[in-house]
């Protein structure tokens, strides 16, 4: 094997080894989120939104629409969907409607210095719909 090939084989195998080590890390690291918002099973299965036997509150459905349109899942997760950095499962157990509203429109007010941008461009109706959606996120 010539030296150039040796360098290539060593480098690419190192890359592969690093990938496998990371996979191993992911396997032994803590398991994924287990808390699921039983109140909003349609987060994981959007088809359930159209289930005639179990109608969804139109205000909550609208709030879910705002959540998606504002791409909240870039930083938050619901029922294991989205970024696990800041899970929202059970958020309604921890915060009141007023606190939820503040977290959306003026997070600095509720926790000064927090790294979260205010969603103050939302209309009153959109904020209320979003809060209505967040309010159903309770632990079973």
């Amino acid at each position: 094997m010539n030296r150039e090939t040796a360098a290539a084989v060593t480098a690419l195998n190192s890359g592969l080894l690093i990938f496998l080590a990371v996979v191993l890390f992911a396997l032994v690291n803590h398991p994924g989120p287990t808390a699921t918002a039983a109140a909003a099973p349609w987060v994981a299965e959007p088809a359930l939104l159209d289930d005639p036997d179990d109608p969804v509150d139109p205000q909550v459905e609208r709030g879910w629409g705002v959540y998606q349109a504002e791409r909240c899942s870039a930083c938050h997760s619901v029922a294991g969907q989205g970024s696990p950095r800041y899970p929202l499962d059970g958020v309604a157990d921890r915060l009141s409607a007023q606190e939820l509203r503040l977290w959306v429109v003026d997070p600095q007010e509720i926790r000064p210095g927090v790294r979260k941008r205010p969603y103050d461009h939302l209309s009153e109706e959109e904020v209320e719909a979003l809060v209505a959606f967040l309010e159903i996120l309770v632990e079973p």
Binding site: A26, G32, P33
Partner: peptide, 13 residues
């Protein structure tokens, strides 16, 4: 807490 298998793979990478 871990973010699930694929999330953790992505972070590790």
């Amino acid at each position: 807490p871990g973010g699930g298998f694929w999330w953790d793979v992505s972070m590790g990478l």
